[in-house]
Design a protein around this nucleic acid. Structure first.
Lengths: 245, 245
DNA sequence: CGGCTACTTGAATACTTTCAATCCGCGTGG
DNA sequence: CCACGCGGATTGAAAGTATTCAAGTAGCCG
């Protein structure tokens, strides 16, 4: 069941900028569909050419890269409000796939509208660029994480970052717990470790009563200590900058 | 000594798009200065706010992130034609520093012009976004590299990628050699290893007659084998898309 | 009650780091 | 012109961290 952009609840989260009538109208016309995909379904595949742009409306997805040796690197975890497929739409070719890990619903946006968006709504266009730049900074930190942190730090950081990203989107059950549908295997491919070692590390964090993941739920027992362990600093993110629904 | 954009040799490399009179004029007016910095000088510092945008005109620089524990992660190697400081200019705050590693010359561009650029030259604006998206893809691969490759692959890949990036910029001495001013220490911080292990790995590549770095020069003895080792596939990069001089 | 998949645990192995010592090239100053 | 000092590079040995292999457990669904 399609949600018109005017009534989109995501739009009201602190992640998105306020829109003018005009802008909202334009974005509304870009939206051509609203689809639901099953867990594990692919939203977009490596080497796919072109295709639409999506906004993840509900559910989780991963953006990943398959390596020639059979391995997998999860490049990013995509949460509601995240844009999927910009590179594919504007560059033509991409080097990663996107896969739903829960049931997910997506807004489908016509890629052809982008040149018009840039001509007619320069402020939106600038906000899109700003959003990409903010995402680049998040990726920079992820790079440092893989290059210069040990197993505990990597996992602790990912927990905290994901927890906070959910909060920014108005998701999360108030306390120190949030949904976390990634399995050991996914976690491993996200932080560059083996499944076994992720399991051990998780066990250690659990024993030390810092955090735990069970039954698809993340629990932060001691956010303070966890943040210190991971050198986690909550980022202001791109508050109020996102321009695409 | 300042080079007017109209005569900029970089502009003619396959990296950049062709510009109209109009566009070139606008970019020319954005350019407020042309400066030279010494090796090891900082071009921009973590937590710095705002500031101009630079284009690296000549020389090498590194974009890096300092970790609370004293470590350093080099996020990217910046080569002539690369844009520096977009995030700082458009987002206000950044989480990385940029440091010259050779003598470098920079074009200084007024950050204030960006809103006008987006209003008046939407095609340029779109190209800027496309360039960022292409860079994001390069960072994605770097992430896979740190997450899922061993020491030899990391270093081999970095060698090949850098070699080809220089070629795209019309730099390189024809054969299988190119300048490579990064020291062991820098290499280590770029690929997430210790200096010692970088040294050993480099030694191994040298013994096997695959590649070597000495006296600031990279030599690819056997590009074929090196590419196979690293699963390196030359990327079309963002050919002919860059819009900022 | 299988059979499946995810998760856990143990042991052996492999890769990388750390520590420490040595070497080398180069610029300085005697 | 040569000794000295310094930073970078190399090498060896020991310690640490993470991977692989393998076996076993737990929960879920038919």
């Amino acid at each position: 069941m399609s949600v018109p952009c005017e009534q989109c609840p995501l739009r009201l989260t602190p992640l998105f900028r306020p829109f003018s009538e005009n802008e909202l109208g334009f974005i509304g016309r870009m939206k051509t569909d609203h689809i639901v995909v099953a867990p594990r379904a692919h939203i977009m595949h490596e080497d796919e050419i072109g295709g639409p742009v999506y906004t993840l409306f509900e559910g989780w997805a991963i953006r990943y890269h398959r390596l020639p040796n059979g391995g997998r690197q999860i490049l990013d975890i995509m949460l509601p409000g995240d844009t999927i497929g910009l590179a594919s739409a504007l560059l033509g070719r991409i080097k990663h796939s996107v896969q739903a890990i829960t049931t997910a619903t997506l807004c489908v946006l016509e890629a052809r509208s982008f040149p018009d968006l840039f001509s007619d709504h320069p402020a939106l266009a600038l906000n899109i660029l700003q959003t990409r730049l903010a995402e680049e900074q998040r990726m920079d930190i992820r790079l440092s994480l893989l290059g210069r942190s040990d197993a505990e730090q990597r996992i602790a950081y990912l927990m905290l970052e994901t927890f906070d990203r959910l909060r920014q989107r108005g998701i999360g059950h108030g306390g120190s717990t949030c949904p976390f549908p990634l399995q050991r295997r996914d976690l491993a491919d996200a932080v560059g470790l083996s499944t076994v070692h992720v399991g051990r590390t998780l066990g250690s964090l659990r024993e030390r009563r810092l955090a735990d993941i069970q039954n698809g739920m993340l629990i932060l027992f001691d956010r303070e200590k966890l943040a210190e362990l991971a050198s986690y600093v909550p980022t202001g993110d791109a508050k109020g900058r996102r321009a695409i629904l």
